[in-house]
Write a protein that binds this DNA or RNA. Structure first.
Length: 524
RNA sequence: GACCCGAUAGCUCAGCUGGUAGAGCAACGGACUUUUAAUCCGUAGGUCGCGGGUUCGAAACCCGCUCGGGUCACCA
């Protein structure tokens, strides 16, 4: 992209220069190339639906008058007549320009129209010889001249399936220039509409249960609630470091103490770690907390929430819809069938499942050295540098998690893995915690929240010890949180669900980049 | 981070074993008053990712680098 670097019109390449020349020609002809508005009467799909079915053979009665607006996505000039297709949010509609009809002067202006221009057209509907509902243009208005060509591919319909030729396939460019990706790929627009519908449905679900939507700090003086490397920033006036939150958890639970007994937040968390297919440095998290609930109740909440989210996505994408844009671009074909699941989800007990998978009576009875060698066997790297909790977690990932396909709860994690969870009734070495897995990925994490401030202090101190020993993901002691808990926190159930991952699961999207409008990328 | 693959016209790509670049679409000019991947004729468009090396000669071979993709690892 050298033209940006060089700037100046003389350096524009010939393609961009041609567009500028047309812009100048429009201005010379008295056409304002950037309009202030347009009174659209119908979307394309609605206009097409207005037209009565084909009349008797050979009859070409005009239909009602419409005013449509959108982007030019196809242009076929035939001398004194021109066909074009206009795209708007509802779909496409064909336009027909005839020199006799719109006059020599207006017809000449069409020479300065290009693919990608935003125009408004008014005129009556009619059917062409092939039966396609078309606007016979009586008046055409330039609304926004495109000075840069959009990477449209040509399309044809073969046996009812739209086949796209060439086009915009570079995944990196599609993420960097999401505006262009959206502009040329209706299926990408539809995918992100489905994402929006999913979030809206989840809000509706929480609100119906009398949960209060709240906002807690993104800038935090201490980070906690998740084990991850934080982003650090600096507040100039206070001259102190602040951390971008890696979780909302500790603030939401302060609200439970305050008597807001059901709260939720949907917002971005930030983790200063690698970027890959399932990790973006900022991502959308839903957390919700409910007083007087335990993890059993929270499992049913999660099940219901997934059903609602699935329904919302299905309504936008429809059943058996063709592939998402991401899949089309990567040639994955029409495999994006929505997942099929029904509550209640199966439950696997952490300890017995892992012990069984490893062929030992009880993994918790193995000493650290034995865990390390088992982890090494399972393909875990750098086992020597891992703490006991980490080894357990790695073993679980390797032996169990990665093999879970349909939504499944894993319950009762070891206490040492879960610093914010309440000990399990009847077995204090475990906690009342569950995670939800599907397609080998974690979708949710939840517990009966620890509400004993003395126990919580001991857990924090154990974390602080790990941190002092070099585990830079462990958190420290959050005294203010402990103070809140000392005022008395009712028993509480809490859940965190990664919205990006949930959406990926529901839509069969394999890369998180394709589930986020503007994923984090290295600068160009 | 390791290994593999890739980077050529605005887009999608081809370019065999080294002889200084090609197609389709888009663009530009022309013909065409119901086309729809419109068609037909013509034109223009490239520091072949960057740097070095081998060679009479490099898009191609070698080395390094940058960026991207995949797989694995890491990120509970």
């Amino acid at each position: 992209m050298t033209e940006e670097a060089q700037g100046g019109e003389t350096d524009l390449n010939f393609v961009l220069q041609a567009r500028r020349d047309k812009l100048d020609a429009l201005v010379s002809a008295g056409v304002a190339p950037f309009a202030y508005g347009f009174d659209r009467s119908h979307f394309a799909a609605a206009a097409i639906a207005l037209m009565p079915p084909p009349a008797a053979e050979g009859e070409h009665a005009d239909g009602p008058q419409v005013r449509v607006a959108g982007r030019i996505v196809a242009w076929r000039a035939h001398g004194k007549t021109t066909f074009a297709h206009l795209m708007d949010p509802s779909g496409r509609i064909q336009l027909y320009f005839k020199k006799d009809q719109i006059g020599e002067q207006q017809y000449a202006v069409l020479d300065n129209f290009d693919l990608g221009d935003v125009i408004g057209v008014s005129g009556p509907l009619f059917r062409t010889r092939t039966g396609e509902v078309t606007v016979r243009a009586e008046k055409v208005e330039m609304l926004a001249k495109a000075l840069r060509p959009l990477p449209f591919g040509k399309e044809e319909v073969v046996d009812g399936v739209t086949v796209r030729h060439s086009g915009f396939a570079d995944g990196e460019m599609r993420s960097r220039q999401r505006y262009a990706d959206l502009a040329v790929h209706p299926e990408v627009r539809r995918l992100f509409r489905a994402r929006s519908a999913m979030i809206t449905a989840i809000r509706g679900f929480m609100n119906e249960l009398d949960y209060l939507e709240v906002e807690t700090p993104v800038l935090q003086p201490l980070y906690g609630g998740a084990t991850a490397r934080p982003f650090i920033t600096h507040h100039a006036a206070l001259d102190m470091p602040l951390y971008l939150r890696s979780a909302d958890e500790l603030y939401l639970k302060r609200l439970i103490v305050g008597g807001l007994e059901r709260v939720y937040e949907i917002g971005h968390d930030f983790r200063n770690e690698g970027i890959d297919k399932t990790h973006n440095p900022e991502f959308t998290m839903l957390e919700f907390y409910e007083a007087y609930a335990d993890y059993e109740l929270m499992m049913t909440r999660v099940e219901q929430l997934l059903v609602r989210a699935h329904g919302a996505v299905a309504r936008v994408l429809g059943d058996g819809q063709p592939a998402t844009g991401a899949q089309r671009a990567t040639g994955e074909g029409n495999s994006a069938e929505l997942p099929d699941f029904k509550p209640p989800f199966p439950r696997l007990d952490w300890l017995t499942t892992l012990s069984k998978a490893m062929g030992v009576p009880n993994v918790m009875e193995l000493d650290t050295a034995a865990l390390a060698s088992a982890a090494e066997q399972a393909g875990v790297q750098k086992v020597g540098s891992l703490s006991r909790p980490k080894l357990l977690d790695e073993l679980f990932q390797a032996h169990v998690e990665s093999k879970i396909d349909t939504p499944t709860f894993v319950v009762d994690y070891p206490l040492e893995l879960s610093p914010l969870a309440k000990p399990k009734r009847g077995n204090p070495a475990l906690t009342e915690r569950f995670e939800l897995f599907a397609r080998g990925k974690e979708l949710a994490n939840a517990f009966s929240e620890l509400n004993d401030p003395l126990d919580q202090r001991r857990r924090f101190e154990a974390q602080a010890k790990l941190k002092a020993a070099g585990d830079d993901e462990a958190s420290g002691v959050d005294e203010d949180y402990l103070r809140a808990m000392e005022y008395g926190m009712p028993p509480t159930g809490g859940v965190g669900i990664g919205m990006d991952r949930l959406f990926m699961y529901l839509t069969g999207t394999s890369h998180i980049r394709d589930a986020i409008l503007f994923p984090t990328m290295r600068p160009e």
